[in-house]
Each structure stands twice: as structure tokens, then as C-alpha cells.
Design a protein around this nucleic acid. Structure first.
Lengths: 245, 245
DNA sequence: GACCAAAAATTTGCATTCATTTTTGGATGA
DNA sequence: TCATCCAAAAATGAATGCAAATTTTTGGTC
């Protein structure tokens, strides 16, 4: 069900907590539960706990200075977001991404980006497009400089802005959820070791920008899905390389 | 401090509870929390509480025979799923779908079905395809008979099987979540009052089956998105008609 | 030294309790 | 009649308590 994780209700209802749909770090938190949820989510997403590691209630209560009740509520929500697993009578564990699940998550990301691209073509303003174009050129400059950090920042900025341009709160929330789940893997997708992929990604981004400029929704949708598929392939390759090393 | 994960062997991943990825009604519930969550979700989705109505903790505790602690945990999760809103110090309310949000949710459904169709073309077995074909013909028979109930059942069966054929747990979970949020609206989309839409939908399903038979992923993806767009339009039309009535 | 069973200690799940906030009801006054 | 204000009642948010389950430690045996 998912089941997915949230911010749109927080936006719609003002103060409502909707972790599933809310962009994690953007969740306004007037309540302890809301604050704690955001903190704990960041704590997990940032990788402070090793994958598969037990999530000890007691320690986290001390760390955040709260009692077990709100913590346990937050853990239930994080489980519904897919960040942790709850084992009956055996506590919570940081979810560990196996190969199959990683592949599945990348495909959903691809579907969400494809959707975002299509919607963005319908709704994007000229200003928002110009900003994406600017980021694209900045990204290209970083690519030429082999500036991985700058490249990543611009790259993520582009994808985020496409999602934002789609102007669809539930989509943005779901996207944020999946991005959080894949965050660790995505950072691991180190282009530095795969120059071919880097060039390929850059060419794909040329196509993305072109389709977006023409407001070619279905076309952009398809390009974005294939773009994510290739990103998935690169990540999987890296994964197996890491396993072999 | 970094918590170590490597001390003991990995817990059997098969036994892990992953509410987010599990289809709501299929969530195995060995725990009270799990059981209650599924029950409460059904209770809300089934429409036992009026949209916008307060969700009284006390009454629900009595109804389910539990204390407030597990109930409140479940409410937090339902909020993260977008089914209810939590207003700080003012309790939970059944989320009310405004027009804009309904439109947004339909678009996400379209994107998810588009993704499911594309993946299904890659993975579907001949048996699963044959079953969808069978359902398609049953749906057509219902259409000719003007059997709305049978038509809906077959229709939903087809869409569900396409999602299942995609063989992607996070996708299935997310799809189930959005379907739950839109459930009330979807039932409201009464084709009986809109014969033109009914015929149009039937023709679209012919295209869907054809693309699936040819395993034409990108094409099926596009058809499914447009199919949902038309369904969205029909629902919106009905909505405004109901408002005017 | 490895292996296994039993007891201690920790941890989890849920109920209960307490402090705050909100809501309700009515009295007061214009 | 209506609006405003205030106190009582109810509801919410969080902490604490307790029984059951699990994990760890201990002690003994082979």
C-alpha cells in the first residue's frame, strides 16, 4: 500500500501531517510527532544506521529526548514508507535493498519521472523551463570539467524541477519517498568509474531538454523512462562490481 | 554512534513485514498493530466515515476493542497513506478530495498504470495474458448486456492483472494506495449516465489488449495513460454534474 | 573448546495515566 | 436576540507502567 510517504496534505491542509505524501524534509512539524518523524526519517535516509541493523528504541529515545510512544508511532510510519521493516516482537530494522528490490524501485522511479515529464510539458511555465535550461548548461559545464559533485547537483536539480513543474502534490510526495529509499544507492552510482555511462547520460539529457523545449509530453515521458533504465543498469553494474571487489 | 548490523546473520527477509509494499488487504497481520491497521484502512476506504468527518479515537477504540495507543499508531500510518488528515491537537479527519486533488490523483494513477503496462509487456507470461484476454471478452459481453456490475468487475480485474504482471512489489503497493484513495470517486464514475464514455472506454480496452498481445510496451504505456485521462475526465464531468444537481 | 539448556536481562507491545489543548455549555451583557 | 466571555467537560499528545516475548548470559556437559 504503501503504501507510499507524504507532504501534500501538509500543504493542502496547512498543518496536517501527511508523511507519506510530504516531501520528507519539507514536512512542517508543529507537533512533536511531526518533528520527530522528519528527524528520524532523515536519520535513517542519511545512512546513520547500517542497512539491516536493528533500530533500538531505547537509544533513539535518548538521542531525540522523547518517550517511546511518539518514537514508535514514527517507526510505524517509516515502515509504511518502506524505509524500515518491522518484525513482530523483534523490533525495527533498516531495510536492506536486495538487487531485485533495487531494480524494482528504479523502475518505479522511471515511471514517476516519465509521468512528471509528461505533466511538466502540459504545465511548465517559460520561466521554469528557462531555469531547467540553465541547470542543463551548468551540468554540461560540470561534465566537461569532470566535476562530479557539480554534475550531480545540477542533475538532481533538473529532475527535481521537472517533478515540481508537473505541479502534482501526490506525485511529488511519492517521488520524494522513492528517492529517499534509493538515496543510498543513487549516491553509490559513481560515474567516476564509468565514463561511458557519464557521456551517455549527458546525451540523454540533451534529448530530455529538447523534448521539454518542444513540450513533447509522450516523447519526454519515454526518454525519461529509458534514462532511468540506463541509470538502473549503471547502478546494478556498480553493485555487482562492488560485490566482486 | 554507528550501529553495527553485521553481528548476526540477516533476518529471513521473507518473514519481514513491509507494510508499505504490501497490498493493504493482503498484509499479513500477526500483530495487533498490523491487524488493526488493515481493519481501520478498510473501515475508512469503505466509506464508513463521511469525508471531512472527525475520526473519534474513543469510539474506534470501543469498536475495535483496543486501547488508544495502537489506534493512534494506525492513524499516523493512514495519514501517511493520504487517507486521513491529522490536525495537531484537533484529531484526525477523513480526507476530503477536492477537485484539484482528485485530478492529481487520477494523473498519478495514469502514470502508474502506464508504467505497469510497460513492465507487463516485458514480463507477462502467456498464461497471464490469456487470463486478461478472457477477462476482456467477459467485459465486452457485459458491455453488450449493459451489465454495469459485471463490466466493472472485469475491468478492475484487467487493470489489477496488468499491475500484477508488472511483477513489481513497490509499484503494486503504490498502485493499491492510490486506488484506495480514489475508490470512492471511482465508484461514483457511473457509466450508466454516460453511454458515450462507456463505448469509448470499451474501444480503448481493445487497443490495450492489442498492444499487450504485441508486447508493445511504450505503446501500451501511452494508451493506458490516455485511458486514465479519459476516465479522469468522465469522473470530473460526473462530479460537476453531481454538484449541479 | 564446542555445544546446549536454563535463568537473567533486555526489549517489545499495549494499557493506563497525566498534562495541555480544544470544545462545549451556559451566563452575562449589550 | 445575539455576541462575548468563562468554566466545565472532553479530547488529544505524550509519558509511564506492566505483562509477554525475545535476546543475552550463565552454567553445565560431552
Amino acid at each position: 500500500m504503501m503504501l507510499d510517504a507524504g507532504m501534500e496534505s501538509a500543504i493542502d491542509a496547512g498543518a496536517a501531517i501527511a508523511p507519506h505524501d510530504a516531501v520528507p524534509s519539507a514536512t512542517g512539524a508543529a507537533t512533536l510527532h511531526g518533528t520527530l518523524l522528519a528527524q528520524l526519517r532523515d536519520y535513517v535516509v542519511e545512512g546513520n544506521l547500517a542497512p539491516g541493523a536493528r533500530v533500538p528504541e531505547r537509544l533513539l529515545c535518548e538521542r531525540f529526548g522523547i518517550s517511546r510512544t511518539p518514537l514508535r508511532e514514527a517507526l510505524k510510519v517509516l515502515a509504511s514508507e518502506g524505509l524500515i521493516d518491522l518484525l513482530p516482537n523483534r523490533g525495527a530494522r533498516v531495510r536492506q535493498l536486495g538487487h531485485d528490490e533495487m531494480v524494482a524501485l528504479f523502475d518505479v522511479m522511471g515511471g514517476l519521472e516519465a509521468l512528471a515529464g509528461r505533466l511538466a510539458c502540459e504545465k511548465i511555465t517559460e520561466e521554469a523551463y528557462a531555469e531547467i535550461e540553465r541547470l542543463h548548461h551548468a551540468m554540461y559545464a560540470s561534465y566537461l570539467r569532470r566535476d562530479l559533485h557539480g554534475y550531480f547537483a545540477a542533475n538532481q536539480g533538473i529532475h527535481d524541477r521537472i517533478v515540481a513543474a508537473a505541479d502534482n502534490a501526490p506525485l511529488a510526495a511519492t517521488y520524494a519517498n522513492f528517492a529517499g529509499r534509493l538515496r543510498r544507492v543513487r549516491y553509490a552510482a559513481n560515474l567516476d568509474k564509468d565514463r561511458d555511462r557519464w557521456g551517455e547520460a549527458m546525451r540523454e539529457h540533451e534529448e530530455i531538454l529538447d523534448a521539454l523545449r518542444r513540450r513533447a509530453g509522450p516523447e519526454l515521458s519515454d526518454i525519461l523512462f529509458r534514462h532511468l533504465r540506463n541509470k538502473r543498469r549503471a547502478a546494478a553494474t556498480q553493485e555487482s562490481a562492488a560485490a566482486g571487489a
